[in-house]
Amino acid sequence: MKNLNYTGKAKLKPVLILTKLFTVILIIFSCSSNDDGSAAARANSLQVFSGDNQSSYIGNQLSDVIEILVNDQNGNAFAGTTVSFSVSEGTVIPNIATTDATGKALVTWTLGSSIGEQILTATAFANDGTPLIGSPLNILAEGLDLCQILTNTEQLPIGPDAGTETNSIINVSDDFIIAPDVLVSINLEHTFDADLEIFLIAPNGLIIELSTDNGAGGDNYTNTVFDDQASALIIDGIAPFTGSFRPEGVLSGLIGNEAQGDWILKIIDDAGADGGMLLSWSLQLCRS
């Protein structure tokens, strides 16, 4: 009887071991699967839902929020994933976000000071610490210059009859308040510069005197830039006035006015005989 009892106990050990092993397998399986036996959902991939490739003026917030989408292994939206954000420059708010019930994490982006491409990077990880598919993810935006240069290249006659007026228009379609630095550039041909009176007229009717009766009997204004910050005065210049000159009026008087509307370059030929041609002119306006 002792031998039989010993043998019986020996046969029970493998059964107990197999039972415990089967229990462990069941526990592992139940933790990684749903009630129907399918694999439990887990964060799998990261992608841009909306907001990529926007543009705005440097230092300004993009008009649309950035939406990042996290999907599970079956392509369904996945909630509860932490997404971290960083920018090459500027500010992103918040810099850490958790995906909502639609699988999205939303942030706003205020651009930095560089003109051109700027980059926002989103990163997210699975529970085991591995990066999601698509992470890190770069979102691009373009920073626009606060200053714009508009040009009219229509050629118009100047003179030759005394009192003849030449008016050339540049239309500004954007609605913004003018900030420093206003510049006016002109190219014109004329055989007696001292006959000319040149003005800039703003959309609100404000008149800025650029140059009147300067240059004596010299010819032309060639790549002439009117700039309040220039060291040379236009009244001291010599035709063809190539370079930058302070105008007779003050361009900074335009600061704080609205930019939108028609800007007029008015040229008056106040003497007869000599004449010429307006070749082109440009206007630089900046916003804050």
Rank of each mutant, 00 (worst) to 15 (best):
A77N: 13
S56R: 15
Q61N: 11
G51W: 02
N76K: 14
V65L: 01
N60G: 00
G80A: 07
Q73D: 12
N71P: 10
F78C: 01
A77E: 15
S63Y: 06
Q73A: 12
F78E: 03
Q61F: 08
D52Q: 03
V65S: 05
L62I: 08
E67C: 00
A77P: 15
A77G: 10
A79T: 10
Q54N: 12
A77Y: 13
Q61K: 15
Y57V: 10
N76V: 09
L69H: 11
G51Y: 05
G80D: 14
V70Q: 08
I58S: 03
G51N: 08
F78P: 01
D52L: 03
D52I: 05
Y57K: 09
F78L: 04
D64I: 03
V70S: 04
N76E: 13
I66E: 10
N71H: 06
Q73N: 11
G80T: 06
N60W: 08
E67S: 00
A79G: 09
Y57H: 13
N53G: 03
Y57G: 00
L62Q: 12
Q54K: 12
V70Y: 09
A77C: 03
N60L: 12
I66G: 07
L69D: 07
S63W: 02
I68C: 01
I66C: 04
N53H: 13
Q61S: 15
I66D: 05
N71F: 02
G59A: 09
N53M: 09
N71Y: 02
V70N: 05
I68R: 02
N60S: 11
N74P: 03
D64C: 02
N60V: 02
A77V: 15
I68S: 03
G75Q: 03
V70E: 08
I68Q: 02
D72Y: 02
D72A: 05
N60C: 04
N74A: 11
G80I: 09
Q54W: 10
S55E: 03
G80C: 07
N76S: 11
G75P: 04
S55C: 08
I68M: 05
S56G: 14
Q73I: 07
E67Y: 00
I68G: 04
Q73E: 14
S56W: 06
L62Y: 08
G51I: 06
G75A: 02
F78Q: 09
G59R: 09
N53S: 14
L62A: 14
N53F: 11
Q54G: 15
G75M: 03
A79R: 00
G59K: 06
G75L: 03
S63D: 07
N74Q: 11
D52W: 05
G75W: 00
N71Q: 13
F78W: 02
G59T: 09
N53R: 06
N53E: 13
I58F: 05
Y57F: 15
G51S: 04
D64W: 01
I66Y: 02
